[in-house]
C-alpha cells in the first residue's frame, strides 16, 4: 500500500526547507514515479508557498519528473568524461532497444530514458543508473543484456 501525500506531509513541519524531502517521498510513493500537479498543490498549500516556487524546484532538479515514468528509470551519464568514452553509442543503443527517445517512456510502461548530470562514477565509465542501481564500464553488448534481464525480471514478477 502506497503512502498518501497527506500522511507524508504530516511527518514534516510546514517549513519550506522541508520541500525537497517531501517531494522525494511523494515521488517515490507514486506508482509512476512522478509528481502529479494534484499532489504539488497539496504541498504548496501545506508549506504556504506559491505553486510556482514548488514547480520551480521540481523543474530545476532532473531527479524530479512531472510526467508519469516507467518502472525502470534509465539515467545515462552525460558528463564530458562519459561522452568521450562513448556514451553516445550507449544512448543510441538504448534508443534502439527501447524504441523511444530520451525523456520518453516505453508504451508498456517499463522503461523511461533520461540523461543525467555526472553520476560521479568516472573511474569506470561510461556509466548509468537504473533506479538505484549503478552500472559502469558499459558497452553496447552489456546494455542489451541488462535491458533483457530487466524485461524478464518484470515478466516473472508479474506472473
Amino acid at each position: 500500500m502506497k503512502i498518501m501525500t497527506e500522511e507524508i506531509l504530516l511527518k514534516y513541519k510546514p517549513q519550506k526547507n522541508n520541500l525537497l524531502q517531501i517531494l522525494h517521498e511523494i515521488q517515490t510513493e507514486q506508482p509512476h514515479q512522478y509528481l502529479p500537479e494534484t499532489e504539488l498543490r497539496k504541498v504548496s498549500k501545506y508549506l504556504n508557498i506559491s505553486m510556482s516556487s514548488v514547480y520551480g524546484v521540481v523543474s530545476y532538479y532532473t531527479m524530479f519528473s512531472i510526467k508519469p515514468r516507467g518502472k525502470f528509470i534509465v539515467r545515462l551519464c552525460q558528463s564530458p568524461v562519459c561522452d568521450m568514452l562513448g556514451s553516445q553509442l550507449i544512448a543510441n543503443k538504448l534508443k534502439e532497444l527501447l524504441q523511444i527517445d530520451f525523456n520518453e517512456t516505453t508504451s508498456d510502461g517499463l522503461f523511461t530514458l533520461e540523461f543525467s548530470e555526472c553520476l560521479g562514477l568516472c573511474a569506470n565509465k561510461p556509466s548509468m543508473m537504473i533506479n538505484k542501481q549503478a552500472y559502469t564500464g558499459l558497452n553496447v553488448d552489456v546494455i542489451e543484456l541488462i535491458i533483457n534481464d530487466l524485461r524478464n525480471e518484470s515478466k516473472n514478477s508479474d506472473n
Binding site: S52, Y55, G56, S59
Partner: peptide
C-alpha cells in the same frame, strides 16, 4: 507581499512562471 512568481527550468532556457506554468 504575494510571492506568486518564480523561475522554472535551468540556464538559458529558464523563464518566469505563475502557478505550474
Amino acid at each position: 507581499g504575494k510571492s506568486v512568481l518564480s523561475f522554472t527550468d535551468r540556464g538559458i532556457s529558464s523563464y518566469i512562471i505563475g502557478g505550474f506554468g
